[in-house]
Each structure stands twice: as structure tokens, then as C-alpha cells.
Simulated assay, not measured.
Amino acid sequence: MSVASEYLQLQRQSADELVRQHAPLVRRIAYHLMGRLPPSVDVSDLIQAGMIGLLEAARNFTTGKNASFETFAGIRIRGAMLDELRRTDWTPRSVHRKVREMAEVVRQIEIETGADADDAEVMRRLGMGAEEYHQVLADAASARLLSLSAPDDADGGAAFDVVDGDSLSPADSVEHEGMREALVEAIGSLPEREQLVMSLYYEEELNLKEIGAVLGVTESRVCQIHGQAIVRLRARMSGWHEGQAERSAKQRKGTKGM
């Protein structure tokens, strides 16, 4: 056996051992994510995607890095699971449509009043009863509807998608940074309880039951508050997208005139 072949064989053995040792990490991450996802998601699909992420991590990890293999693998495993969730969007189109309609009504009310849209007024304008209204909020919270970088007619997307900055052109990088700043500002303008739920869910990574324990309310109520925050953010970010579209159009027009 040549030196090169021997080296490759040792690499494969080392990768296989890392996969065996850290397989429980995949299940742990999968079940942690499941606490924040609707029941329609199959945990076995997440585990399968996570195992692929673990295998890729084992093949690409090199010693001497600052991060441990478990940290490195955890990032790859989680990323593979999120990619799987993005690839298989379980949300019916009707849900996306209703949330878009609700966000537009919220936006209209807030433009007219200069204040946070009131639930009762949103229901009145949509012609919805309380039960249907709360169901749409629950759907908004459990589905990946907050694709704030997507146009209004898009059917979905991942919540708070993280874009690889290295893959962006200079113009795209400026736009992405502008969107992130607008999103941070929009979150900061939410009612206090909605801000807290968003922080506990996305930053602290608590599930709805854990957030309910913190706030002293039921899990279903947390789901509604989360949905209200998502709808409100979608409404407020739509103005930023319209302004961005206008700026892009002016830039294209100016380029043609040169």
C-alpha cells in the first residue's frame, strides 16, 4: 500500500470513529429543534439530514482549529437540518396567503393610526372571528413565513435566513446589511411582550412551553404572541422592501442614462 493510500485509509477510519462517537449529538439537536416545530415535521427526517451533516463535518474537520469537533459538528448538523426544513416546506399556500393579507391590514392600520394595530380592528377589517384569527396567528408562528428578504408574492421561506456574506456581491452585501439593520429596528419597535417572545425564541432558543413558563401564560398564548410579532414584522418590513425596490429602479435608470 502506498503512503498516500495509507493516509487516506487512516483519514476514513478517523472520520468513521468521529461519526460513531457523536451520533447521539444528532438526536439531541433534532429533538431540541422539534420543540420549536409543528407536529407535522418528522423527526426521523431531521435525524437523517443531521447524520449527513455529521459525516461532512467528520470529513472536513482538521485538528488545530480553535473550535472542538463537537462545536464544529453541531454547527454542520444544525445547518443540514435547517436546509432540510427549507427544502420541504410543509405550509399550505392558503396559510401564506392569509398571513400576507393579515400583514397588509396591520400595515394599513399602523399607517393610519401611527400606533400598534389592535387585534379587534384587524379582525373587523378581515371579517374574521376570534377563533379563525388566532388560528392564523398560530399558523404564522409554526410555519416558516418570515422570509423578510423575499418579495410579497413569495410563497414562503426560512425564518430569519442567514446569508453567507462571502457569497454576496458588494451591492448585495450592502442590501443585506441594510435589511438586517431594518429588521433589528423593526424588532425594537414591537410591543414589549412580543419583543420578549422573539428574544427568548430566536436568541435564547427556548421552545414555546418554556417561554410560557417564563411569562406565566399557556403555550397556546405564547404561540399567538409569536404569530402577532411575525405578522407585525412582515407588515413593517414591507415598507423597507418597497423603498429598496424604488432605489434599485432609480439606480438602473441612472445607469442606462450614462
Rank of each mutant, 00 (worst) to 15 (best):
G79L: 05
F61Q: 00
T63E: 13
L145S: 03
R193Y: 00
M81C: 04
V106D: 04
E110H: 06
V162T: 14
F69A: 00
S14N: 14
A120K: 07
L137K: 00
P191V: 12
E56Q: 05
F61T: 00
M258L: 09
E177M: 08
V184P: 02
V106S: 11
Y202W: 13
V105G: 02
R252Q: 00
L145R: 00
R76Q: 11
P39Q: 03
R100Q: 11
G178N: 06
L46N: 06
E203T: 12
V43M: 07
E185P: 03
D164P: 05
P92V: 08
I225T: 04
V231F: 05
R100C: 09
R144L: 10
I230L: 10
G216D: 04
A103M: 06
F61G: 01
L148A: 14
Q48E: 14
L200E: 11
V214Y: 08
V222E: 02
R100M: 12
A245W: 01
Q251P: 07
S149V: 09
R247K: 10
K253T: 12
G257V: 14
A143P: 03
I52W: 08
E101P: 05
I75L: 15
L25T: 10
G188R: 08
Q9R: 15
I109R: 06
P92Y: 07
I47A: 08
S169D: 07
D164L: 02
D172S: 10
T255D: 08
D155W: 06
A120Q: 05
S238P: 02
E181M: 12
D89P: 03
V184F: 08
V136T: 08
H176F: 10
L146S: 08
Q48I: 11
